[in-house]
Write a protein that binds this DNA or RNA. Structure first.
Length: 559
RNA sequence: UGGGGUGUAGCCAAGCGGUAAGGCACAAGACUUUGACUCUUGCAUUGCGUAGGUUCAAAUCCUGCCACCCCAGCCA
């Protein structure tokens, strides 16, 4: 890696370049520290992208570290899911580490060291008493009566805490900083608590657990992390982080915490506790419901990892608050899907068309490009026959201005096949259109001489004999449009039923070309002129279910 | 009312004393066997939260003010 050839693109990279040049560090090591207590969503994704991409840019690496220091919240199921998510996103951690297994002993030793320096003490105050003596935002706190007990006594008590001599919640280990500090987090923060909850990883080995403010900087230090990149929520914790690093860590390289703003999307409900609520109360199909912006949900919806990463990168690395319109995410998803999705024809709302000058039982093979933007993608075969289906909205007996699809006596091209002319509209008893009688114009087949006849429009279709019925799942926004920040509304006490949109999952039937029988879950398709779709994992051999990933842009303005 | 953070277009965002990049959205047009994609054009004419100051020159430096966000779990 040559520092001189690296152009920093944000304030964190600028600092890294400086540190590298000044020789303060010689490699960039970051970390991705999820607490296994829920599934990742796009917000977390930003943190992982920044940690991984930053390290990558400087030739460094990133650890995946389960920040599992609280036995009451964590589950192995979640830890497993992160491994899959990260792999899907395309990142490979230097190692997968469980803080509980790898660092609990080391953190404990550092705590003892701090006690012996006279900078930590065992407190006997109850939680309520501690809260009372903490002071407020504008008034200082009061020292605990146990604050100045001899360090030997604290050490003895701390060892006894570990040995299980005291009941849960009875004692805590606290850092001796400053009870009148203007930053409340600096008022003798708690380093250890007593808890006999069963830990999913370490079982009952420990009955004391380190608290985040102490645990995190020590984990970073023990791991050799040089930059601990987290979201702006932790900005106020930086002072505590640095205090612990300065007072506990003798290593040459001291980890630095730097913060960037969280990712907020308009009209999207994020936040572990809310997602959990949706899942547990069965508002959605599960953590991987395509309406959720969890990694697994987006994957099932048909979003691509590259699209998500491009979007996250487009948001930049800054410290200012922002809320991005959903359309911005959609742009990056479409942009990537356009490159990778295989084209296919599917009629979502079929209207039967009889090609009167085509004999029954006779079929003609046609070819469809798998992806016109990718020369190497090849073609697949489809069929033209007497009985076909077109999209109901592709025919109108009362066309609006600039309508360039099929009309009575009008012509239109069938994608990949012939130009057809509508000779007759057959109505049913209710006066609705039952089917169309059309003729195909000879010599207008795609690729043939005469195929360059000018037509206003091209529509997609499927031949009855080359199609199968499938299910389409369409997703509307989970929450009502008027709630730009649904999470904030919930925090302010609005009931979840109030903010959820009714019928956000709409199921319908469609006629898909037979080629789509080869689809596998999570593969990407563009149903031409409609949108991008992916096969849902609920599909069976007899029942294909396609999830609508996102529609194509549509610039046709009715009226 | 304590501490910290942030204010550049409808939404993001570059800018680091030399005269407002880029993207999304939007609008108009070209192309098109997907009304997609692509392409072209327009989109802050002294305006960068605001009021002053320094300077030949300020979004950039200084001072005051205003607005918004975060912090008082034995959560992370």
């Amino acid at each position: 890696m040559d520092i001189e050839n690296i152009t920093p693109t944000n304030f964190i990279e600028e600092e890294i370049v400086k540190d590298l040049r000044e020789g303060k560090i010689d490699k960039v090591i970051t970390r991705c520290p999820p607490e296994p207590s829920g599934y990742w969503h796009i917000g977390h994704c930003k943190a992982w992208v920044i940690n991984f991409e930053t390290a990558l840019k400087f030739g460094g690496y990133t650890y995946l570290r389960m920040d599992d220091t609280n036995p009451s919240r964590e589950q192995g199921e979640f830890a497993e899911s992160y491994l899959d998510d990260l792999k899907w996103l395309g990142y490979t951690p230097k190692a997968v580490i469980y803080a509980s297994e790898a660092y609990f002993e080391g953190i404990y030793n550092l705590a003892e060291k701090l006690i012996m320096k006279g900078l930590a003490y065992v407190d006997e105050l109850s939680q309520e008493e501690q809260l009372k003596m903490k002071g407020t935002l504008t008034t200082p706190g009061i020292n605990s009566p146990y604050r100045d007990r001899p360090k030997e006594e604290s050490l003895k008590l701390f060892r006894e805490m570990r040995a299980g001599k005291f009941p849960d919640g009875s004692l805590t280990l606290r850092a001796k900083i400053d009870m009148s500090h203007p930053n409340i987090l600096m008022r003798d923060p708690i380093m250890y608590k007593i808890s006999r909850e069963h830990h999913y990883k370490t079982g009952d080995k420990w009955c004391i657990y380190p608290i985040y403010d102490f645990a995190h900087p020590m984990e970073d230090a023990l791991e050799g992390v040089t930059y601990s990149l987290c979201d702006i929520t932790f900005r106020v914790h930086r002072e505590v982080y640095e205090w612990f690093v300065d007072n506990c860590w003798d290593g040459e390289v001291k980890p630095k915490q730097r913060e960037f703003s969280t990712l907020n999307l308009e009209n999207v409900l994020l936040g572990k506790r809310y997602l959990k609520q949706l899942v547990e109360s069965k508002y959605v199909m599960g953590w991987d419901d395509p309406r959720l912006l969890t990694i697994v949900g987006m994957k099932r919806r048909g979003y691509t990892a590259q699209g998500i990463k491009n979007f996250v990168k487009s948001c930049g690395v800054v410290a200012s608050e922002s809320t991005i319109p959903f359309s911005s995410l959609e742009y990056y998803i479409r942009e990537d899907l356009n490159k990778v999705a295989t084209r296919a024809m599917v009629v979502l709302n079929p209207l039967k068309v009889i090609i009167t000058n085509m004999e029954d039982g006779v079929t003609e093979e046609i070819e469809i490009e798998n992806n016109p933007n990718d020369e190497n993608s090849g073609k697949h075969k489809a069929v033209f026959a007497r009985e076909i289906y077109i999209e109901r909205e592709d025919f109108s007996d009362n066309p609006p201005p600039k309508y360039n699809r099929l009309t009575p006596n009008g012509i239109v091209r069938l994608k990949g096949a012939y130009v057809i002319k509508c000779n007759n509209v057959v109505y049913d008893n209710n006066g609705d259109i039952d089917h169309l009688e059309c003729e195909y114009l000879k010599n207008t087949k795609s690729g043939q001489e005469g195929s360059n006849i000018k037509v206003k429009g091209t529509i997609h279709f499927v031949a009855k004999c080359n199609s199968f019925d499938c299910t389409i799942r369409d997703f509307k926004n989970l929450t009502k449009d008027e709630y730009l920040w649904p999470g904030k509304a919930l925090a302010q006490g609005v009931k979840i039923d109030e903010i959820l949109q009714q019928n956000s999952l709409v199921t319908s039937r469609a006629k898909a070309e037979k080629f789509l029988k080869t689809a596998t879950p999570y593969s990407h398709y563009q149903f031409m002129r409609k949108g991008y779709y992916t096969l849902d994992k609920d599909s069976t051999k007899d029942e294909y279910i396609f999830n609508s990933t996102i529609s194509l842009k549509d610039s046709f303005k009715k009226n």
